[in-house]
């Protein structure tokens, strides 16, 4: 039974309230929520349906580039481009899903196929002149901030991503406790058995994958507005897809809010490390979190979020 993630929700809201006074804290809050939302969405497909996508950066990139292109080339508001971005991402996810599921790609194979799709997008965008090639695109400032979504202050961004995160958590909770969630988990645990029992696996896999893609596209669109700059490396790279996996493994893939916990630990921690150690040792923070990842994957496969339950059982 999936309980409503009340404590994580309250903590996130409290985090927002605590960070409103300080621009730097708000930046950390926004990044945590942004990557947390993407990881939670990734985990709906990967952790609950067993669709180990390694190409989610494709959908993040679609979100970010659709908004960036609409704003820079046509002066349109991100609000106009957002539905379009989600639509394109969902259509792409459906197309990739239909291809992969039709030909029965599972496990590693599905992961590598999605990785290949995102790499193709990465290289095509790097070559596309109208998308700024590998130099990327800068979003112009100005206009009414609530239309162009270019704020001087940080808190409006915090509020927006907070709403996206809460909506994702509530939608995820509602779906997981409904029939859909049980179908998803049955597909994850044993696809053949689920199919034999009459679960329409093709449709429910597509739904899970497309939903996950749609949510991360919203996050990508938000990223474009927040950073006001997109380039292939930051929104379409393999590293981004892998990051979602890292957050989920560390926080715990069996929990709806596990990936959010992973992001809430790693993002502030790497910010702190950067302050303590300084920029001279660039790789140190990644060395530490890679070691944490290996250790947890080997010795605590359920992730940090499962610690509480473990103690209660034993």
């Amino acid at each position: 039974m999936i309980r409503f993630p009340l404590i994580p929700v309250l903590l996130v809201v409290a985090g927002f309230a605590a960070a409103t006074q300080d621009r730097y804290l708000m930046d950390v809050f926004v990044l945590t929520c942004l990557y947390g939302t993407m990881a939670v969405a990734w985990n709906l497909a990967a952790g609950f349906t067993g669709l180990l996508s390694l190409g989610h950066s494709l959908f993040i990139g679609i979100g970010a580039y659709t908004v960036a292109y609409g704003v820079t080339a046509h002066g349109l508001s991100p609000w106009v481009m957002l539905p379009l971005a989600v639509l394109i991402a969902v259509v792409c996810a459906l197309a990739i899903g239909v291809l992969c599921f039709r030909y029965g790609l599972k496990g590693y194979y599905f992961g590598i196929a999605t990785l290949a799709f995102s790499e193709i997008a990465f290289f095509l965008v790097s070559a596309a002149v109208w998308l700024g090639r590998s130099d990327g695109m800068m979003l112009p400032a100005g206009g009414d901030p609530w239309i162009s979504l270019q704020f001087r202050a940080k808190w409006p961004y915090g509020l927006m991503i907070l709403v996206v995160l809460l909506a994702t958590l509530i939608a995820g909770w509602a779906l997981l406790r409904a029939k859909t969630g049980y179908y998803w988990r049955s597909i994850r645990d044993n696809e053949e058995a689920a199919e034999a029992l009459g679960v329409p696996i093709f449709g429910f896999k597509l739904f899970s994958f497309a939903l996950s893609a749609g949510i991360v596209a919203v996050c990508g669109a938000f990223y474009a507005c927040y950073v006001a700059f997109v380039d292939p490396r930051s929104v379409l790279g393999v590293e981004l897809s892998i990051q979602l996996l890292v957050f989920s493994i560390i926080g715990g893939m069996g929990l709806l809010w596990g990936p959010l916990l992973g992001a809430a630990i790693l993002i502030p921690a790497s910010e702190l490390l950067r302050i303590w150690i300084g920029a001279s040792f660039y790789g140190v923070n990644i060395v530490l979190y890679a070691s944490l990842l290996i250790g947890l994957a080997l010795f605590l496969p359920q992730g940090l979020g499962a610690l509480r339950w473990r103690r209660r059982v034993s």
């Binding site: 493994i249 790789g283 990644i286 890679a290 990842l293 290996i294 994957a297």
Partner: peptide, 21 residues
């Protein structure tokens, strides 16, 4: 499977950044 993937991915990040340091 997912944990095996995470282990070798972690190893890849670890070695890359150790080399960078």
């Amino acid at each position: 499977e997912i944990n095996q993937m995470a282990v070798t991915l972690g190893l890849s990040l670890l070695l890359q950044n150790l080399a960078l340091m």
